[in-house]
Computed example of a mutant assay.
Amino acid sequence: MSVESTRVSKPLPGRERSTPLLRRPGVLRALVPVGLLVAWQAASQLGLVSERKLPAPSVVFEAGLEVYQSGALGDALWVSGERALFGFLLGAALGIGLGILAGTSRFGEYTVDPPLQMLRTIPLFGLIPLFIIWFGIGEEPKVYLIALGVLFPLYLNTYAGVRHLDPKLLELGDALRLGRIERLRTLVIPGALPQILVGVRQSLGIAWLSLVVAEQINASAGLGFIVNNAREFLRTDIVIFGLLLYSLLGLITDSIVRFFEARALRWQPTPSR
């Protein structure tokens, strides 16, 4: 047999890692939402869904275009984004900090965990009247309500991540005689990072959910203000457009966390598909 006949043809450069379009993760994740929009549009055109109660996607898109052309959409996104960002950062700092404190010391567990477990059983949105009494009707109750919603999932996931660390990591810290700060920085936080990132994704969803409710507290700007005005004028199309924007913002922030999660946890084995 000649050498030429046994020579294996190699793929051309640039084609080794090419993935078919329909198998790319971004395309696959978009198939179901696009399919739902198509079904929704078809049901509206066939008269299966009342236009008054649930306008067609094309009508909602025209309403959104109307809001955008009025110039109100950009300002609303900026204001709502600020509220969500400040509330998330505050809640995340408290949730991760308290989770590490409760997970790494008995003192923290006995002083932090019981009151937080009691507080998290209180309905978040039932606290709105109390927040209004305490903080008024400005920006503070909105930000604090979002922060409170963010705190609990991040605390629980951080606490669980720290408590379920590999014992070998702790033995390694003892063998290297690491100090508390070094142990946290090099062992505890990296080891608990997968669970913490799960908490980040959960808390981001709750942050946008809390924002929807928080912006009902006498909001004079933001997406909630647009939705409230539309409700008063029975503009169901604009209300649905605002709700779709909330969900789209949640999807975008979740995708950002997934992007960083894939790079921060490259060392972690993934199941084959």
Rank of each mutant, 00 (worst) to 15 (best):
E51Q: 15
R52I: 10
K53N: 11
K53T: 13
L54N: 03
L54K: 03
P55K: 07
P55D: 02
A56R: 14
P57T: 03
S58T: 15
S58L: 15
F61A: 13
E62R: 15
E62H: 14
E62C: 14
A63K: 02
A63V: 00
A63R: 03
G64Y: 01
G64P: 00
L65M: 13
L65P: 01
V67I: 12
Y68E: 09
Q69G: 14
Q69P: 00
Q69N: 10
S70L: 06
S70C: 06
G71E: 04
A72V: 12
L73R: 01
L73M: 09
G74L: 12
D75L: 14
D75W: 06
D75I: 09
A76G: 04
A76Y: 00
L77H: 01
L77M: 09
W78K: 13
W78C: 10
S80M: 04
S80N: 05
S80P: 02
S80L: 04
S80E: 04
G81W: 08
G81H: 03
G81V: 01
G81M: 05
E82V: 15
E82A: 13
A84R: 00
A84Q: 01
L85T: 11
L85R: 07
F86C: 09
F86T: 09
F86H: 08
F86V: 12
F86W: 11
G87E: 05
F88R: 01
F88S: 11
L90M: 07
G91M: 06
G91I: 02
L94C: 09
L94Q: 05
G95Y: 05
I96P: 00
L98R: 10
G99W: 04
I100F: 10
I100V: 15
I100A: 04
L101D: 04
L101N: 06
L101V: 12
A102Y: 01
T104G: 07
R106Y: 08
F107H: 12
F107E: 05
F107S: 13
F107W: 12
G108E: 02
E109W: 13
E109F: 15
Y110H: 12
D113G: 09
P114A: 05
P114I: 01
P115V: 07
P115D: 07
L116P: 04
L116D: 06
Q117E: 11
M118G: 12
R120S: 01
I122T: 11
P123H: 13
F125W: 07
F125V: 15
L127V: 02
L127P: 00
I128W: 05
I128T: 07
I128G: 03
P129I: 06
F131H: 02
F131C: 05
F131W: 09
F131I: 00
I132S: 09
W134D: 11
F135P: 04
F135D: 08
G136N: 02
G136M: 03
G136Q: 04
I137T: 13
I137R: 12
I137L: 13
G138V: 11
G138F: 03
G138N: 05
G138I: 10
E139K: 10
E140V: 15
E140L: 15
